[in-house]
Nucleic acid binder design. Structure first.
Lengths: 254, 254
DNA sequence: CTTATAGTTCTATTATACGGAACATAGTTC
DNA sequence: GAACTATGTTCCGTATAATAGAACTATAAG
């Protein structure tokens, strides 16, 4: 057993108690906990007293068992709220670049547009901050459509009515009914495909990121030139983008 | 300084670190934390290593500061999900009984009806489990209306259309439009009043309990015979019921 | 009533958490 | 670019604080 240098035994144990209690939602007694922790009853008890005093665990009055405390709800909320989506997603975007060999993007929804807040390229190891901050419409970009599709029905209609469906290329969807059907299909399968609807020669697969309330807050995509991305490759990429988007959403408490 | 007997110093300190980090959402360095904890840098550092290893804190790669870890989101979710609303509310219901001298109820929404899951009476110190499990309609009870008012608009209409507005007393609201207006008023002020709409001679003030997503999951009320409750007393009670409902909702992460 | 089981408090022992110093790293100032 | 500061990390001897086990309660079971 390695000595776990640089950390504090009793703290490790206390945190392990929390983990054990997470697995036992009906609560555990001191003796059970002591066994699982491989410590004496008195040690387990003292650790519990510290956790109890701070509200990290509570004692069920009826069963006399210890369970996770309400304080943890607060903490969870707090972390969710102050989460920096860019930092959170960064590692995943790199993973997507690795897998696909193409460029990955992260964008958030702001004022009926998307704003790119990160972009990671395969070739250049340095980030191109130039494009970061760029805004794009919702109706004809991969991330835009993915985000739009997951907004509430009324909000979608409102945005379309307010902003229209401006034509960027011959492939841009400009008919409202067609767009609504398209979005509902995106919502069903979880990801969107941009088939040169914003810029000719560029294909893109994207998926939304949802927060703990199930609200769409951002989107990620992988995009690249048509010549390098076959239909088949794009659909493989789309699966990966979807998977990653779900992992990120999960981190947000989704 | 009392010795905080029965707890573990290092655990207390580690948990305090989490509390301090909660107040500093942009993160803190080792030195700052050590100062606030009144311990040496090395101690603060070792405590952080334990917290870090378990994912309770994370280190921001860009600023090199420590902040609350994503693990806490999981815990929060877990606690919310496994929360026993009855146990949670119990103390608060007793408080309401104390304040009002009348009977307090807790009910949850189930299948377009409310189900009473707790009832606490002033006179009898023992709980009357007889009434627990009883079902009642949404449109003419205090809790029912409070819950109904906080459902999504469409859901409200759907429920009314499906279940109708059955007349129980002369005061029962049976007109759909009148009911919708009534409900929107309830939503505005946060609490509902049942003025003999279900049972003659019984007045009641109720308010909804919302979960972390803002969804209504239950309601609480204080009810009593007309002869003991003046209009004025009822409105005083309603304020208390509202306050308590908000406190419980907050515990649920609202 | 006795026995068993779990929770809580007490206490002597030593392992372990502690502070301070040393070292490392980076960011600033001149 | 050297000298200086501020901050993070590692090391180490010491004494404190955490530990195990026993004693003591409080319930529950037989």
């Amino acid at each position: 057993m390695d000595k776990d240098v640089g950390s504090v035994q009793s703290v490790d144990r206390a945190l392990t108690i929390l983990e054990i209690l997470q697995e036992n939602s009906k609560g555990l007694g001191v003796t059970d906990l002591a066994k699982q922790l491989h410590v004496s009853k008195s040690t387990a008890h003292r650790l519990l007293m510290s956790l109890l005093k701070k509200g990290f665990v509570q004692k069920d009055m009826e069963t006399d068992k210890y369970l996770l405390g309400l304080k943890l709800i607060e903490f969870g909320q707090n972390v969710s709220e102050n989460l920096d989506i860019r930092k959170l997603a960064s590692g995943y975007l790199h993973e997507l670049v690795e897998i696909s060999g193409e460029t990955a993007h992260l964008a958030i929804l702001d004022n009926n547009e998307i704003v790119y807040i990160d972009k990671i390229e395969s070739s250049a190891t340095i980030r191109m901050y130039s494009k970061i901050g760029k805004r794009a419409p919702l109706h004809c970009t991969g991330i835009g459509k993915a985000v739009l599709a997951f907004l509430p029905e009324e909000k979608i209609k409102q945005i379309i009515d307010e902003n229209g469906l401006k034509k960027f290329t011959d492939k841009t969807i400009t008919d409202k009914e067609e767009m609504l059907a398209h979005l509902s299909e995106i919502k069903r399968r979880g990801y969107s495909i941009d088939d040169e609807e914003h810029e000719l020669g560029i294909n893109c697969a994207a998926a939304p990121i949802l927060n703990h309330k199930g609200e769409v807050v951002a989107g990620i995509s992988v995009a690249g030139p048509l010549m390098r991305i076959s239909k088949e490759k794009l659909s493989r990429i789309a699966k990966e983008v979807l998977r990653v988007s779900q992992e990120i959403s999960r981190l947000l408490g989704r």
